[in-house]
Write a protein that binds this DNA or RNA. Structure first.
Lengths: 249, 249
DNA sequence: CAGCCCTGAATAGTCATATTATATGACCCC
DNA sequence: GGGGTCATATAATATGACTATTCAGGGCTG
């Protein structure tokens, strides 16, 4: 049985989670104009056939993620997307399920390219033996040759999470865990394990990051992780072009 | 009547928000060990003297922010802090209210130093006339000499939000709005408006950012915003040292 | 004796209904 | 026309009942 739960994509069993996911996805898709009101409580209850309790808790969840704001007598209003918590595991999962268009991947990459080198540099600056050991173990796991796309993606995720931890900055760590979740999802389309050469290059790239961190070379660590990011982006681009090419035939 | 609502620090009127803030703050303070269970529903109801409905919605809110996870028969368990959504306006507000210790400010600064230059560079790359115009207007507002700490903080906030928007990256914009909120809170302790020279330097620093963005000089824009961040950090450090010195007397 | 399954109890999830609080817009008085 | 007041719509809160899930322990079976 595959352990998909880590991707936060496959669960959502309680009616609460399901409805939150549905409405959250619709909001992300722009089905409800910012500033306008969501359907009223009774309407939503009618639509989803649940009790008021559940419906209210769903709205509380959406409110907690910044999507909406409820006020007595006013209704539940959709907030400006600026306030939406994109850096929330659920929200990103919903967004990913909506489709990984180029635009979104570009935005994500831009954030990664700015944040992850900083995290790596901090890790190099504060390197602790336990952090380095953990990173080495992550690389060892990534190097295994019996990976499925899924298992490799999780190993990759673990590595970047470890970088976040090693940075010693709780905010960085928090972001890393969220950003990587989205990244892992993209591996469903194209993965290093599909090509041995790509796999080796990716593993070596990650090993180079650890080397730089271990010796405390901040700049080298930042450069190395940038390189890894770009290898990944390039792979995705190439895969997409191929897919488009095939589609045209 | 002061418009404090923008800082998300002063509201929290409904019993729901109040209790969520209390429990959220306690969680941030580490009052509940990760992996352990929160007090049971009946206990919390007893403690806060509210109905089950309210208590449950509070827990849904905390769950939505990644603090806890509820399961039937198991109870409500505190999640590992890695999963907590620090980049959430409410969570940051709670964290700020808990106190802006050096450790936290350092973490925040590290994130800003990596993210904001990237946002500025992107803005320079994609510069649109309307974005530049809005930034210019922000600088004009900041330059006013009749500022209170509060009003200057808001003008500064607007500027950095505008940078986020100008980056054309919704993820960047989303983060900017959250990070800046915490920053603004720090202005309560030390503000550029306390010293005319500081005020002028700060305004000029911001103007330089806009100049670079307008001419499309990515690197210059990134450098300029780094400088602004460092001026701010330096001011805070100096103020703190002074306060400590006074405390010793 | 070991392993499996069944059952019971604990706990959160869901439901239905009633009551309260609050913001809005209209209305009225000045 | 400005400002206060009131009716009303809507969400907020309260309450009590019932359901679903899952853990733990005991008993059955091999």
């Amino acid at each position: 049985m595959p352990r998909l739960s880590r991707l936060a994509l496959e669960r959502a069993r309680s009616s609460h989670d399901q409805i939150a996911a549905i409405l959250g996805t619709e909001l992300l898709r722009g089905a409800y104009a910012p500033g306008s009101n969501m359907p009223s409580e009774p309407e939503l209850i009618e639509r989803f056939q649940v009790s008021r309790t559940v419906m209210r808790e769903v709205m509380k969840t959406l409110a907690a993620k910044g999507f909406v704001i409820s006020k007595t007598r006013v209704g539940t209003r959709v907030r400006d997307p600026v306030y939406w918590n994109y850096f929330d595991a659920d929200v990103l999962a919903w967004r990913v399920r909506l489709g990984l268009d180029d635009e979104f991947m570009k935005s994500l990459t831009e954030v990664r390219r700015s944040l992850e080198p900083a995290a790596a540099a901090l890790a190099a600056q504060r390197r602790s033996p336990t952090d380095v050991a953990r990173l080495r173990e992550c690389v060892r796991q990534m190097a295994r040759t019996d990976h499925t796309r899924q298992s490799f993606a999780e190993a990759d995720l673990d590595f970047h999470l470890a970088i976040g931890s090693a940075s010693g900055n709780p905010l960085m760590r928090s972001m890393a865990s969220v950003i990587e979740t989205a990244l892992v999802a993209s591996f469903a389309h194209s993965s290093p394990v599909d090509d041995p050469a790509d796999h080796e290059a990716t593993v070596n790239g990650h090993a180079a990051i650890v080397d730089a961190i271990e010796t405390g070379e901040e700049q080298a660590a930042a450069d190395a992780i940038l390189k890894v990011i770009d290898i990944g982006v390039n792979r995705i681009d190439v895969t997409r072009k191929k897919q488009r090419g095939q589609a045209k035939k």
